[in-house]
């Protein structure tokens, strides 16, 4: 939760930077006359709505939620991006450099969050009675920022995106590999926009072991359910459908349903299996939301 708050605050700060250059973004009187292939410019979207989320990573969320997303690319190709409130595991804040574009494809040097930070606590009863002291052992992981290449293709209403990131800024483990492939399509029905999205994300064994293998300290407790674990690389599969409707030239209504089939390498790890026993946790991620956003 703290991570989310920090992310949203940093996103808001990013938004404050973005606000000035994009304040006229939705103003039809100020049409950008730049090249159609230019990627420069951006937007900032701040929304509030309802969100339901069941996940193995935190307690169930069911209520009001703040959503924030934005992107701004400078003329020199450097861009900053923020996404909070949805798909928090894989997006967050990003920076990059858009170095080459064709009519349909853009190519970026992309610095992104490949995995959020984790905070796990395990309580061990050191005595035989219930009144014995309980020792809490923590297994925390720093968020992982990675650098890689991203290419995005746009064909009419379809978008395809590939990311391959081999370099990690997290110095607590050797470089792993993060990769993803997405395909999405949108349809217009009057002024409504419907979209569908399918994606696969890959995290190599270095990443999965850093976050999900049982620590030596916990293994030493000889708890049968928390034994040693060696993860391999694994794939998450994400599907999403959603609708959007422009309420006014600055206000957008959106609703989405997203399901993430979490990699077995993660969900079958002893630590995640232990957490899955907590009420309100699920093995995979189901997320539903609807929100009204103000778009600058």
């Amino acid at each position: 939760m703290n991570t989310n708050v920090r992310g949203i605050i940093s996103g808001l700060l990013l938004g404050a930077v973005l606000l000035n250059p994009v304040s006229s973004y939705a103003d039809e009187a100020k049409v950008d006359s730049s090249d159609e292939n230019s990627r420069s410019g951006g937007y900032l979207k701040i929304g509030y709505g309802y969100k339901y989320e069941e996940t193995p990573f935190h307690d169930k969320k069911d209520g009001g939620a703040l959503f924030l997303s934005g992107r701004y690319q400078f003329e020199n190709g450097i861009y900053i991006e923020a996404s909070h409130g949805a798909n928090e595991l894989s997006i967050g804040n990003s920076v990059g450099y858009n170095f080459y574009n064709t009519e349909h494809w853009s190519f970026d040097l992309h610095g992104m969050q490949a995995h959020g930070s984790t905070e796990m606590g395990f309580g061990f009863n050191n005595g035989n009675s219930e009144n014995s002291d309980i020792e809490i052992l923590h297994m925390d992981g720093k968020y992982t920022r990675m650098l890689g290449l991203r290419t995005t293709g746009t064909y009419d209403q379809a978008t395809i995106q590939f990311i391959f990131a081999p370099y990690s800024f997290n110095d607590e483990y050797d470089d792993g590999i993060f990769a993803s492939a997405w395909i999405g399509r949108s349809w217009q029905l009057k002024n409504w926009e419907l979209h569908a999205l399918v994606g696969v994300t890959y995290r190599s064994e270095e990443i999965n072991n850093y976050y999900y293998s049982t620590s030596d300290e916990i293994i030493a407790k000889n708890e049968p359910q928390l034994g040693p674990y060696q993860a391999d690389g694994g794939f998450d599969v994400v599907t999403q459908v959603g609708v959007s409707y422009p309420v006014s030239k600055n206000v957008l209504f959106e609703s989405y349903l997203r399901y993430t089939d979490v990699s077995d390498e993660v969900s079958q790890s002893p630590v995640m299996r232990a957490f899955s026993k907590i009420d309100g946790r699920a093995e995979n991620v189901t997320e539903f939301g609807f929100l009204f956003s103000y778009v600058f």
Binding site: A26, V31, S69, S83, R150, T152, T154, T159, L252, V295
Partner: peptide, 17 residues
């Protein structure tokens, strides 16, 4: 009027939905 202006590619490079 519109919410997002024409530079759709700059959005879609990241905002997949």
């Amino acid at each position: 009027a519109w919410i997002y202006k024409r530079n759709a590619k700059s959005r879609s490079t990241w905002r997949m939905f």
